[in-house]
């Protein structure tokens, strides 16, 4: 009997994010039935795709026990460059997209260079580039709002068999990331480096190159996510994507990715992004005081991470090494 309850507890804790997701989903649905409509669900997924894409990139970084705080600024800077070129040189949307992605990737490569070559800890490097990136964007625009051509908005409205473009891009990113992480040598080496960098070196893995690539991937995702997000808004201002790094890190961690490296997967990040977005929309649907919303969102993220730490404690208990057999009953 005791064994069963332990298993149920473990099952609940191991899937705490899913459980929390379902509970909140049902709760918001009961409070406001409109929340459960196809339109609103599509909206959640669409809105989640921007955070989701950078959360997938963030997952790569977190798997190596690193962190990328600069993704929000990266989204801003890469979109600024693309927007200015589109307005002033009149390049098209596709070229604009390529520019944004290229700038984002370079941004990530700069992070990678400083981290791997100059051996400065990722937290400080990306905290600095967070400030530098936004500063650079502000200098380019003189802090002015950048308006994109009308073609940008029509690009944003593209649908494929009724599925909005951002969701399709999100799905492609998820699929690619999943294949890279689970089916390629590079992907498996990311897990190895995150688990034990010393052992990875001894196994002949070029750990620096592995680490460099995860920041480049994170930068790529940020450039892509920024541009796709602009295509929904049509313009960007100075505070565009500010604080997105928080959502991305929270989404990845909510999905079970460890900040200490080596543990996590893409679907966790997707689930985390969906949870964050659902909470945000659910609060709007339920007419929760606008000023209270960020706080409630923060509390829910805190709860999810709290359950996650309970799970870790629970796992530790189950994995405890015993020196002698544990007696289930005291001998009579």
């Amino acid at each position: 009997m005791k064994r069963r309850t332990i298993n149920l507890r473990t099952l609940l804790l191991n899937n705490s994010t899913i459980v929390l997701f379902i509970v909140l989903f049902v709760y918001f649905g009961i409070q406001s039935p409109r929340f459960l409509s196809l339109e609103s669900i599509t909206n959640i997924v669409k809105q989640a795709s921007f955070t989701g894409i950078i959360a997938v990139g963030m997952t790569f970084v977190l798997l190596t026990a690193g962190i990328d705080l600069s993704v929000g600024s990266n989204m801003y800077l890469s979109s600024v460059v693309a927007g200015l070129l589109m307005r002033q040189l009149g390049i098209g949307v596709v070229e604009g997209l390529l520019v944004a992605v290229a700038v984002g990737t370079l941004y990530g490569a700069f992070n990678a260079f400083v981290i791997v070559r100059l051996k400065i800890i990722p937290f400080m490097v990306t905290l600095s580039t967070l400030v530098i990136g936004r500063g650079l964007g502000t200098a380019f625009t003189q802090s002015q709002q950048v308006d994109f051509p009308q073609s940008m908005l029509s690009f944003g409205q593209i649908q494929l068999v009724g599925i909005p473009m951002p969701i399709i891009v999100f799905a492609l990113v998820i699929a690619a990331a999943w294949v890279i992480l689970t089916r390629t040598q590079f992907g498996r080496q990311i897990y190895a480096v995150g688990n034990d960098p010393e052992a990875a070196k001894k196994a002949g893995i070029r750990t620096n190159w592995v680490i460099a690539r995860v920041y480049i991937i994170s930068g790529f995702c940020a450039g892509l996510a920024g541009f796709i997000l602009i295509s929904q808004l049509g313009r960007l201002d100075r505070s565009f994507a500010e604080g997105r790094e928080f959502d991305a890190i929270a989404a990845a961690v909510l999905g079970g990715t460890s900040l200490f490296g080596g543990v996590g997967n893409v679907f966790g990040a997707v689930l985390g992004a969906l949870l964050i977005q659902m909470v945000q929309l659910g609060l709007v649907f339920n007419n929760v005081n606008l000023y209270l919303q960020p706080m409630i969102k923060g509390v829910i993220i805190f709860l999810a991470i709290f359950f996650d730490s309970l799970r870790d404690a629970n796992m530790k208990k189950l994995k405890r090494r015993f020196i002698r057999p544990v007696e289930t009953q005291t001998p009579s």
């Binding site: 498996r188 190895a192 995150g194 688990n195 034990d196 990875a200 001894k202 002949g204 080596g262 543990v263």
Partner: peptide
């Protein structure tokens, strides 16, 4: 020098 988060097979082949 094993990666505890991975499988036996992956540990054997991690460098190639």
């Amino acid at each position: 020098n094993l990666f505890t988060n991975m499988t036996i097979a992956e540990n054997v082949f991690i460098s190639g």
